[in-house]
Structure formats: structure tokens, C-alpha cells
């Protein structure tokens, strides 16, 4: 997908001036983002930069201190209860820890939203579950418990559950974290396939540079609660921003510093 024609598409998710304070500490300080229909939008940044917090604001699980959040054309900032649930039925979320319900089988996990929210017959739901599991390459695993499958498989079941209700947008929180490189590539391919084939908008939060550059139509770099830069993979690769460059290359030296000054250390030791 080229960068130019994305600009003409409908905005399906938007964050305007989002600020979040947690107990006096500002975690997000004025975020502005627009995600357009059908694109794969990656939010990248280091641990603790607030990217998961941003994601939770976008799906209405956290409320901003100020600013607005729009999903599928509606302002969901002040939505609670039934109103929020109506919006949530149109989106999917894949969790970092997969968050499968461990008292239910793989099949029951995928069918849960269908059983809870639709009047579909059990036989139809079973066919849907088989179709969803086929999409993530796990057909035949319906009757296993989450504890009996590997981490990568859990992630894929989580994705199958996220797309059970045919959502317009799917949010992924660290989809490749903790997986081996091959499984990470499988998940990346799956995210791309779902976006392309089912024209789902994907919003991915990750610090895995390989998947950032591999799947992102557009990429936003988040650092210390602000967006440093938004652009296509090419634009980000050629960024002039030293922080962005440090993050892409994973280099030790740069504006992002992880150590306190030596003087302070000696001072504390000899205090």
C-alpha cells in the first residue's frame, strides 16, 4: 500500500491531544494520531514509553486525563457500559499475554463472543470456529486447553478470538514478544494476511524492529509519552531524528540514556 493513497481513506481511529496522568506522573503528553481504513499502523517505542497505555485508551479500557478518542467515527472518550460495549463488538484485541480463558478449550475461547453476543445456532458457530482457526493455522486444536499449547499457538488462538466477530479494527499488543524468530515471522505474516485479505485495519504496538519495518504501512515512534515521528517504513528508516535512529539500530549510544551519572553512584556509595 503506497503512502499517497492512504491519505484519501476514511479515518477509522483517531486520538486528539491525549494526555494521561498516573498519580502525578505524565505517561502520555498530548498524543495526536490518525489511523486510516485498511492500513497497518505500528506504534513503536521502548519499554515504558506508554505505548500499551495508549493502546488501552484507544479501545476505551482507560480514560484520558484530557483529549479525545474516536473509534469508527464515534467519540468514545466518555462512553461507559452498554455504549462502550457496542463499539467493542466491532473491534478485536490481541493481548501481549494472549489472555486466553484457561478454564475453556481453544474452541470455546474463539466461540465465546459469538455465543455471548449473537443468536447464531451452535452448529453455525462451530463452523465459524473451524474457519477462524484455519485462518490462523490451528484447525484441529479445538479441544485442547490453553495450558496444552505453546506460546506462539496461544497468540494465534488469541488472534482467532479477536477476529471471531469480524471486527473492522484489530489491535495487537506486542504480538511477537517472547516468541522465537520463526514464530514471530509467522505472526507478522498472519497480521498482514488478515489485513490484506479481510481488509481489517490493524493497529500494532511493538518494540520488535523486524516486525515494525516488515508490516507497518505507517509507523509512529513514541518516546517518553510523545509521538516523535510518523511516517512510512522508508521515511522512518531515513529519519533525521537521532532518537528514532538509535531505536531502529538498537544502538547503545544516543539520546536515550539508560544510566545515571557516575558521580551520583560514587556519592551514594560513600554516603
Amino acid at each position: 500500500m503506497a503512502g499517497a493513497d492512504i491519505e484519501d481513506r476514511k479515518v477509522v481511529a483517531e486520538v486528539k491531544g491525549l494526555v494521561k496522568d498516573f498519580g502525578g506522573r505524565t505517561v502520555l503528553s498530548g498524543i495526536d494520531l490518525k489511523v486510516r481504513e485498511g492500513e497497518t499502523f505500528v506504534i513503536m517505542g521502548g519499554s515504558g514509553c506508554g505505548k500499551s497505555t495508549l493502546l488501552r485508551h484507544m479501545i476505551g479500557n482507560l480514560k484520558p486525563s484530557s483529549g479525545r478518542v474516536y473509534l469508527l467515527g464515534t467519540d468514545i472518550t466518555d462512553f461507559e457500559g452498554a455504549e462502550l460495549d457496542d463499539v467493542r463488538k466491532k473491534i478485536g484485541m490481541s493481548f501481549q499475554s494472549s489472555a486466553l480463558f484457561d478454564s475453556m478449550t481453544v474452541g470455546e475461547n474463539v466461540s465465546l463472543p459469538l455465543r455471548e453476543h449473537t443468536k447464531l445456532e451452535k452448529s453455525v458457530i462451530n463452523i465459524m470456529v473451524t474457519m477462524k482457526l484455519e485462518l490462523v493455522g490451528l484447525r484441529g486444536f479445538e479441544d485442547l486447553m490453553p495450558s496444552e499449547i505453546s506460546g506462539g499457538m496461544k497468540k494465534r488462538v488469541g488472534i482467532a478470538r479477536a477476529i471471531a466477530m469480524d471486527p473492522k479494527i484489530v489491535f495487537y499488543d506486542e504480538p511477537t514478544a517472547g516468541l522465537d524468530p520463526i514464530m514471530a515471522a509467522v505472526i507478522d505474516k498472519l497480521i498482514l494476511d488478515l489485513s490484506r485479505k479481510l481488509s481489517i485495519t490493524s493497529i500494532v504496538v511493538t518494540h520488535d524492529m523486524k516486525s515494525v519495518l516488515g508490516i507497518g504501512d505507517r509507523i509512529a515512534m513514541l518516546y517518553e509519552g510523545s509521538v516523535l515521528e510518523v511516517g512510512t517504513a522508508e521515511e522512518i528508516k531515513n529519519s533525521q531524528n537521532a532518537t528514532v535512529q538509535q531505536f531502529i539500530n538498537g544502538s547503545f549510544d544516543g539520546p536515550i540514556s539508560f544510566f545515571q551519572s557516575k558521580a551520583d553512584y560514587l556519592e551514594q556509595l560513600t554516603k
Binding site: 479500557n61 493481548f95 489472555a99 486466553l100 463472543p113
Partner: peptide
């Protein structure tokens, strides 16, 4: 356990109370 392993949040995100 469901709370700390994000399962409660997952339920809410699936619009299940």
C-alpha cells in the same frame, strides 16, 4: 489469576461484563 493475566480485561474488551 484471571485479573493479573489480562483475562478480565480480555472479557471487557470482548464486551462481556
Amino acid at each position: 489469576t484471571m485479573k493479573v493475566s489480562e483475562q478480565i480485561e480480555a472479557l471487557e474488551t470482548l464486551a462481556i461484563d
